[in-house]
Design a protein around this nucleic acid. Structure first.
Lengths: 325, 325
DNA sequence: CTGAAAGCGCTAACAG
DNA sequence: CTGTTAGCGCTTTCAG
């Protein structure tokens, strides 16, 4: 920068002004031009670190994720967070912890040392967590997770609305006997999607039948294993806890000569693209809004969106494909 | 830091020395203890930005990815890169570009302004790229991609060895008539996996038969469509270009009453966990070493691993499951 | 063994 | 309109 100033025959202050187009500062056209030329000649690039040092507060936002490598979910959160952060002049410092509390503490400490403006603490599936002590030291927003005490702002998917939406797609196609293959794992997804399922049924005047909610491990194997019970139930449609379960169910149904969607319509949840879009027939599902969770997370962190009382709910939109007849 | 110095009754220089346990500097035990106490009392945390400013060179490594949100692949690269970077005291600055050249230029400029030590430029599938001009301005290593002119160090999967390995698994199980469903998309994966397939055949004394290499779109749909030709070929084993193709093939084979692995053994490629581990039967495959690519990338960036003449090849290890009888 | 002082690159008053 | 100067928080000679 000093070099630029020298080359342009002005002071560093002037350079700073033109480089940042400072509003208050009026600079002569000639001087301005000389500076701009010098910047180009010298290939000058401002040092963002020095800038934040002198200004105080940096433009970093930390994003800690517990499982960046297993599903695309964390990737989608990162993507959304980055786009939104970028929009406001912020940059993401990403760290993966694989759920290890020690690593977690270390990476957060690292972020604090780098003067992050705040931290997004995210998990790859919606759940309750206990907030690491060290997060008290900066602004934090929880993404796709929440703490029991509700002390920290959180952004999570609206599982209940998602469950309702899924069921509504089936109802809209004329189905009345609709099974729900829920997960065996206790979680917001488990209880709230079920609640949404019941909401939709009730709204449609269909009586809730306990025998129509089955449980299965939330993987392909679980869906496959549930196939027998599904055909036995005489149902015409199934809402699966997630796309993986639906994938397993496809196999089980096919083995029994049941056609989708002619005999039984199926809807999943998650919109895991690698699976849902490529099953035969392509699977209708409800999307988990990870991108939007990341984006909303930085918005509340930056105070653009209000934090609200409980967790901020992000809608899970339906994604229609061919598995509903 | 000044506060710590004051509280401990020493100078900032002394604080700096004890905080970083400077080798050269001998500090009295009492002074050292006083400083350490003060650090704890005040909850002092060094400012990493100020540190890099004064030291010159930062501890940032930039990682630009073209598609962080679609598959877990980029996530695995990030994971590997971060673990390795961390090990050497570096921190990752991650940016997603979705392949947009403008965004790409912007994020790289941003990274340069943040004084990154170097940049890892990665793609989510192995391919040739044209290197963005701006990357000339810093040390760069290409991860999972390479430039035609070989000007930049690159780290890529060893597709040929992978293709050989896959075929060898089948050969080892006693198969002799082995089909290869290749992709239709020109790429290193396409030509090198084929070369590996031929290598393995030759090494086993099995004659290469052109009619046994089919081509299909590299998705489930492609594999499904290839099923007919596969059964017609009278083959006892199939090497699929990737796991998604294998998944489609499973469907097609099952529809024709062909059992896996009893009638036909199948091996995939990629080790896409969400799919491979949960097909019925679980799919044997060859892993794409994304984690290792990321880690190796930072190693060559930091000069720990030598850059080598051509791209650095990372092995693709076999992952055996139940689809080979 | 420890402190004073200069300087990293930039911004922000404040003078001129 | 433009230049001076004093830091931002830390490291690093260099004296003492």
């Amino acid at each position: 920068m000093r070099d630029v100033a020298k080359a342009a025959g002005v002071s560093v202050a002037t350079v700073s002004h033109v480089v940042n187009d400072k509003p208050g500062a009026r600079i002569g056209d000639d001087a301005r031009r000389r500076v701009q030329d010098a910047v180009l000649e010298l290939g000058y690039r401002p040092n963002a670190l020095a800038k934040t040092l002198s200004q105080g507060g940096s433009r970093f936002i930390g994003l800690v994720a517990d499982a960046i490598a297993t599903t695309p979910f964390a990737g989608q959160i990162i993507h959304g967070a980055q786009d939104e952060a970028w929009k406001h002049g912020y940059v993401l410092l990403v760290a993966n912890t694989e759920g290890d509390p020690v690593v977690e503490k270390d990476v957060i400490a690292m972020m604090l040392e780098h003067q992050v403006h705040g931290i997004l603490y995210s998990t790859w599936y919606h759940r309750e967590i206990v907030v690491p002590e060290i997060l008290q030291q900066t602004d934090t927003v929880l993404v796709d997770c929440f703490s029991a005490d509700g002390a920290l702002p959180a952004v999570v998917p609206d599982e209940r609305q998602g469950g309702r939406t899924a069921t509504e797609q089936l109802l809209a196609a004329g189905h009345r006997r609709i099974a729900f293959i829920n997960t065996t794992t206790p979680s917001p997804a488990r209880s709230d999607r079920l609640a949404g399922y019941r909401d939709a049924l009730e709204a449609a005047g269909v009586e809730f039948d306990t025998r129509l909610v089955l449980e299965a491990e939330p993987q392909q194997e679980g869906g496959y294993a549930a196939a027998e019970a599904i055909v036995a139930s005489g149902v015409t449609a199934v809402f699966c806890h997630n796309d993986r379960v639906a994938m397993g169910l496809y196999d089980g149904l096919r083995e029994r000569g049941v056609r989708i969607p002619a005999d039984i319509a199926v809807i999943g949840f998650d919109n895991q693209d690698v699976i849902a879009a490529h099953l035969r027939p392509p699977l209708s599902t409800v999307a988990l809004p990870h991108y939007e969770l990341g984006a909303a997370g930085v918005r509340v962190l930056l105070g653009i969106d209000p934090a609200g009382e409980g967790p901020t709910l992000v809608a899970c939109p339906p994604v229609l494909r061919a598995s509903i007849g």
